[in-house]
Amino acid sequence: MDKTFAARRRRDLIIAAVLAALAALAPLLIKDVYVQNILILTLMYAALSQSWNILSGYCGQISLGHALYFGIGAYTTELLFTKFGVLPWFGMLAGGVIAAVIAMGLGYPFFRLRGHYFVIATIVIAEIGLLLFQNWEWAGAAMGITIPVRGDSWLKFQFMRSKLPYFYFALALCSLAWFVTWWLEDSKWGFWWRAVKDNPEAAESLGVVVFNSKMGAAAVSAFLVAVGGAFYAQFLAYIDPESVMGFQFSLLMALPAVLGGIGTLWGPVLGAAILIPMTELTRSYIGGSGRGVDLIVYGALIVLISLALPQGLVSLFSRTKAKGATR
């Protein structure tokens, strides 16, 4: 068992490296800006969902309020940049650290809550954040912040002429989130988290400090999501509370992981690779009528997938593998 686990992990790492390399070459073939845009968003949501998966999938603390950290990442970066001229790279890190600290501060009271009480508390805290930012004059209130154009440069992480640098950053972020997950999966923390998810009482009695495990997961998860938020802000060059902190982001982070397979290494990537292009394509091809057909298709797919494959799309692969093993 141990040997196969190690072998599986090595294989996962190789597959990931190959996929990342292939993805890095993709822009050579794909010149269409619209398609590049979809690819960037797909990679970004894969990264976000992967980060969400650390807290909600591995540690089992379902959060539907991660939009808060996303928004904090975006706002920290842009406020520092527009008000104090701090480069987005530092803003990104600062946003991540602030989000992680807030996640731990919130975790202190929140992690006492169980089940639906916890889920609703996460939704509520993100809504409070949204409302506060909408009323915070200094931070642009509901009007938001437009990021001034200072010319294309890596230093200012701003590119108007080409989307490619954003693509590579999104790819790097996605790879980083994947690698962190991969690395944590086999660490002490990874085992603790799964124990906490399955049975917190039993885990506690075996010496796992449940509370600290949850805090760790929350901090890592919030940090990565906030970096994603900072990226998104630079990518859009404009932010307002609804467009970086709205409830839809909490959902869009959760959905790929759930569709792909919650608490699995490949679930979020797989889910995002299917869900995000689907969302974008239905929106642009049949959503133009403004009559909600895209919503109908999208919602129906979510219902069908969640009913038909409760363990996510990843379970399709393991099922065939299990069959192969018995043969």
Partner: peptide, 12 residues
């Protein structure tokens, strides 16, 4: 997610 998907369908 199944009830949530349903909500999206109904809104659509």
């Amino acid at each position: 997610f199944s009830t949530f998907g349903l909500a999206i369908v109904m809104r659509g």
